[in-house]
Design a protein around this nucleic acid. Structure first.
Lengths: 217, 217
DNA sequence: ACGTCTGGATAGTGTCACTATCCAAGCATG
DNA sequence: CATGCTTGGATAGTGACACTATCCAGACGT
């Protein structure tokens, strides 16, 4: 298919597709002549993944390029590609009202380490990108007057475990390695709004349940 | 305290505080003279809440103003204020690669309705802000080649229920109504990165568990 | 052959959260 | 009272970033 058709099928304007080509988020099409190129289904899939990352995930273009490079890296095992790709997706930045003092960060680190131990998760995770993001966020929370310890974080970790089980179940439906890696990135990003929307609905439900005033919500 | 002290204590520059005052995110201080005003602890708390909303939640300034108006609305019951405030917080926008066709949206609505019924949650939630966000996201997911039915969403809803229980438990630690409403907004926003970071750690853990290759992650 | 479409290059737009600069009116000290 | 610093307020500017508008010359289709 040509650029115009790729645009029509994806709903992304030709100008934007050109922009992604320029930025290296989308591999160039097969050149037919000096002014002609052809795209295929892989471009369409990749384009959708790019949109998911940028629009839903809020991932900057430069970071998306890195994530996609990991997705494409043939030299890695499936697991490494999957991990590299997913961990390259940036986390939402925690509050920076005060940059979190060194003491707050140290305390947060201690609590997160305790949490990992309690969960039986490897302590190296503390230095992984999501682990660091967690420490930063917990430190920021403390700075905002909402201190958390391992005990308080535990229920959220249990909830996260359930979500992760669902994620992995879903991934197993995909057969090819290529699809699995792409799906892991796409679903990591795309299920975030799902989980957060459900959380708000569950908050309403739980609040109604506790106060016995279902009609208020 | 004066503006300079408010700035020092919050870590927010005076220029930014002036900007928030101008935008109506922060109520004006008590005027001491034509060129002097005094701020107190409520300003400091509010300022932290504003930062949490804008920096962590990514809430636009205009929306933050609405959320804060709901927080301040004395005419509402605690529950209404809480609900109004939290539901005014925008959801992450779902993919808009194709705006999701009408059929996709209708199908998504059906599945979400089935999910609500299955959970025993009120069907009116379907039209609440988070409910609509969920429908839009599910429709977008279908458009990206990841269809979901009520069955597939259920595990995420279970995870969300756990998170919501933890949220409500946490809220009960706050005594005054003012604090509870503020905390509900702050924690709704601030726990999002916590939950998402934990989810990624849990994904790694779960993947390692399933493949028996813990050293890969 | 001739109007349309193509891919490529370049520069511009819109949004949005700040931020730099001025200004005139206090306040604090000699 | 003078002088220099600070204060709150108003105005315009900045920087980041994801696009987007315009041009262009070379195919392609009829």
């Amino acid at each position: 298919m040509r650029l115009a058709e790729l645009s029509a099928r994806s709903g992304v304007s030709t100008a934007t597709i050109k922009f992604y080509l320029r930025e290296g988020l989308l591999p160039p099409g097969r050149r037919l002549s000096a002014t002609q190129a052809e795209y295929d289904g892989t471009h369409l899939r990749r384009l959708r993944l790019v949109r998911a990352l940028i629009q839903v995930g809020g991932v900057p273009v430069a970071t998306a390029r890195e994530v996609l490079a990991a997705v494409d890296d043939e030299g890695l095992t499936r697991h490494d590609r999957l991990g590299a790709a997913v961990w390259a997706i940036p986390q939402p930045a925690p509050a920076r009202t005060r940059e979190a003092t060194a003491e707050e960060t140290a305390a947060a680190r201690t609590q997160v380490a305790a949490l990992l131990q309690r969960l039986g998760w490897p302590s190296e995770d503390l230095d992984s990108p999501p682990g660091q993001a967690l420490v930063r966020t917990v430190a920021a929370l403390a700075g905002l007057g909402y201190p958390h310890d391992a005990e308080g974080l535990l229920p959220y970790a249990r909830a996260a475990e359930r979500a992760a089980e669902a994620d992995l179940d879903m991934l197993e439906h995909f057969t090819s390695e290529e699809e699995q890696v792409e799906a892991s990135v796409a679903l990591t990003v795309l299920h975030e709004p799902v989980l957060l929307a459900l959380r708000r609905l569950a908050q309403a439900q739980e609040s109604a349940r506790r106060t016995g005033r279902p009609e208020e919500w």
